[in-house]
Amino acid sequence: MTRVRRWLPGLLLVTPSIVAVAVFVYGLLGWNLKVAMTDQHDEISQGSFVGLENFTAIWDQERWGISVRHAIVFTVVFVGGALVLGWLLAFLMEKGIRGESGFRAVYLFPMAVSFIATGVVWRWLMNSGTGERAVGLNSLFHYLGLDFLQWQWFRDPDWGMAAMAIPAIWQMSGYVMALFLAGFRGVPDELRESARVDGCGEWQVYRHIVLPMLRPVTLSALIILGHISLKVFDLIVAVSGKQIITDVPAIFMWTAVFDSHDPAKGATIASYIVISVAVFVVPYLVWNARKGKRS
């Protein structure tokens, strides 16, 4: 009884939050899944249970295939690009450089700004006009004598989504840099020193000592970037709106709800977005919880 008196107040204090998370996160995820399994294709009907029919039927829609392909291209370019650029910036700075705080501030500030605001300027920078009609980056390339670099950016029918990843890389690579910089600095100097004493060159020190110790940071960065990427929405709304050429599941869902007024379809797409994030975040969280218990 005394033991219960010891922890009960704590539980009571957290209860409002537990209830809120239980209802708003888990309850609504379940509710959404329930809607996805009905034939409620307008806003008036109640809809009856149809199982996984919506989940299979959506693959017959051409637009769904396009948006999934777009999301994959975007994710690969964005996650890869932000990781490489962030790593490179951290690598260039890790030994200390004059004016480091200034550099960090410049690389990080895009994180403080919304995609909606930066989309205004990126939409112009990535204007698709080329040659005589070049504006934005294409005209900058022209000034620099790099005309061969001009392309349609996000209007390119095949690789437009790779262009769409550029503003996202611009926004997030500073964050990745900060993560890696903390990782680099977390490697004890004695370890590097003793490797040098053992005759390792600078590159070998990186290969055998520093890079292996960056693995946990890399994993964290991958998870963060990956889950941002799979639900990307604001950026695309701001740069190109609802055009099919840059459609992704989150935009498709938005139009399913507001334009087609089809809750079941919207909920189905939303469920797919959740599943795509959960398949890698859940193992990560479980792994993290176990690691926490061991230490």
Binding site: V25, L28, N32, V257, A270, A278
Partner: peptide, 8 residues
């Protein structure tokens, strides 16, 4: 969680 999953 992607907030799309709870929005509707």
């Amino acid at each position: 969680i992607p907030y799309q999953g709870v929005m509707i």
